[in-house]
């Protein structure tokens, strides 16, 4: 390394320093602090009784049926909503991509649910499915209290999530569609491939990196689902998610140690999902080489 290179490297570090400092302050420090707190029995109501307990909090969470139940619920919601979103998102993306008229208006209209605050959207769905004030029962001509049973409550939560975040998926996928070279499609058409074959053999493989990124983003989001469930059922009917367990332990029980341990475990969950996607499915992380490969 010559002098010039070294100087440039130093300059680069100096230029990055402010951003790195801010990131350390708002991301790294809180994460490390949460990990540290999770090693204590520490109740905010009785701060003087703080004791170091090592990994006890983790043992207690991982042997608790509450945690595994919540994890199961979260996975049902995540897989349920993300798979429907992917399907619907693709359809919407294709519609947006192929619209000839009012392209902007169509795209804007599809994005409206995504622009809405989640709490407001969840409230709207709650009212819609309410047996006395809602229109869904009247529409389907039945009398069902949707949110009082586990199965139907899950259905409503998933539908709300799907309605709310499909536009996000569609937007990412639409950006992917523009990456598909027009000549390839034309060539396939000349070779006699029908629309379905063109979609499966050309569009999807070309878009694979984009699809994976979109699914990864949504999976991470859905795994941390909180507000929709909080508004719709508050965790009743066994619909509690891991984030709600964290909220209840931290903010209702004021149990900082146990609550931090739950948060750390959620973080580990997110980490595992990311590793599976990036290493397992080869989701690109933004570096050039990987997108091209």
């Amino acid at each position: 390394m010559n002098l010039r290179q070294r100087n440039e490297r130093r300059l680069a570090w100096l230029l990055c320093a402010p951003a790195v400092t801010v990131l350390i302050g708002v991301i790294v420090y809180p994460i490390l602090y949460a990990v540290w707190l999770s090693l204590f029995r520490y109740d905010l109501r009785f701060p003087e009784q703080r004791v170091f307990v090592g990994l006890d909090n983790y043992v207690s969470i991982l042997t608790s049926e509450v945690w595994w139940q919540a994890l199961g619920n979260t996975l049902i919601l995540t897989i349920g909503s993300v798979s429907i979103e992917l399907l619907l998102g693709f359809i919407l993306a294709l519609i947006m991509h192929h619209t000839l008229f009012w392209r902007r208006a169509v795209r804007a209209a599809m994005l409206i649910p995504y622009a809405m605050i989640t709490v407001v959207a969840a409230m709207a769905w709650k009212f819609a499915f309410d047996p006395t004030t809602g229109f869904i029962d009247a529409l389907l001509d039945r009398e069902q209290a949707w949110l009082t049973q586990r199965g139907s409550a899950f259905l409503v939560i998933i539908l709300t999530e799907v309605w709310k975040t499909t536009p996000f998926m569609a937007l990412l996928l639409m950006a992917g569609l523009t990456l598909v070279p027009h000549e390839l499609i034309q060539a396939a058409r000349v070779d006699g491939a029908n629309a379905w074959q063109r979609f499966i053999k050309i569009v999807v493989p070309t878009m694979k990196p984009v699809i994976l990124v979109a699914v990864l983003f949504r999976t991470l989001d859905a795994f941390r689902i909180f507000d929709t469930v909080f508004i719709l059922t508050r965790g009743a009917q066994n619909t509690e998610t891991v984030s709600m367990v964290g909220y209840n332990t931290l903010l209702v029980s004021l149990n900082l140690g146990l609550g931090s341990a739950v948060s750390v475990l959620i973080f580990v969950g997110v980490l595992i999902i990311s590793i599976v996607f990036i290493k397992g499915f080869g989701t690109p992380t933004g570096r050039r080489g990987e997108i091209d490969s």
């Binding site: 029995r41 969470i61 608790s64 509450v66 367990v245 149990n255 739950v262």
Partner: peptide, 10 residues
């Protein structure tokens, strides 16, 4: 018992 020891989840 777990609740009284502040160790159970909820």
């Amino acid at each position: 018992t777990r609740a009284l020891n502040s160790e159970g989840l909820l």
